[in-house]
Amino acid sequence: MSSVLYDAPGPLARRRETIGSVVGAIVLAGAIAGAIWYAAGNGVFAADHWDVLYDPPKGQSAGAVWSSMVVRGLGATLRAAALAAPLALVLGLVLAMMRTSHLAWLRVPAIGIIEVFRGLPVLLMMYFGLIGMGLDTYLAVAFGLTVYNMAVISEILRSGLAALPKGQTEAALALGLTRWQTLIIVQLPQAVRIMLPSLIAQLIVLLKDSSLGFIVGYPELLQSIKNNASYFGNDYYVALFTVGFVLFLAVNLSLSALARRVQRRTPGARQVVVAPAANGTGPAV
């Protein structure tokens, strides 16, 4: 292992690292064991905290519990994301085209829309849909996700357009293509391609943010965990939460893996330094 910080280690350093690693591993394992022991002392691992997942009390079937979480809960989460993601992509594309236009009456409103929606919390946008526009919770959640992510996606596309070599546009214009044709045929296909990893990362953010629906009362995964826990008893929170946590991690990590795969397969994607977007989007937060 070599990095900025240290060379490939020699024999003495290797021995020291081995000792350090073993000691560190023991300390870490000890801390984890202590946590588990402490949790077990609170009865967290007892069967009566977990049987909701395979043999629930109150005469319910395990299938009903699982379907309430996976089918209805996770399903609702994914449904909100599935409505918002394509809308955000299309509107983001339109905004990016307006933003890079040389016509001021197209460019200026686009800048305003992008800057405002990027600087506001998604939750506030959801409340805007709910209270301000009188939408139901599903549409309010999708609305909040759409307006925020379209602003971010348009900035991603814009930095993709900015990263293209100037010669591409010049050559297209020299061939006699109009500005519009240049954008559609030459610039955008390349920009979308080099920004594909960032776009997928942003879709992961969108999916994560759909859990904000819990706060505005949209019956998604977290809400189904809470409902189950209030029906079967608070003791089951650990088991139910673990399932929800694993579901979220599984979906998001597989999307992250997809993003990495796409990045490896896209020629030129690595050379482009994805500049942290100027206003408050930056890394996928």
Binding site: L28, Y38, A39, G41, N42, V44, H49, I204, K208, D209, S210, S211, L212, F214, I215, L222, I225, K226, A229, N234, D235, Y237, V238, F241, G244, F245, F248, L249, N252, L253, S256, A284
Partner: peptide, 29 residues
């Protein structure tokens, strides 16, 4: 430890962190 910490939290919605702290942590005393 550092890798697990960052990768887990980056792929977890913030709402889930709040949810765990408010509803699940009491189960651990």
């Amino acid at each position: 430890f550092g890798t697990v910490w960052t990768e887990t939290l980056r792929n977890t919605p913030l709402t889930l962190v709040f949810f765990g702290m408010v509803f699940v942590a009491p189960q651990f005393g």
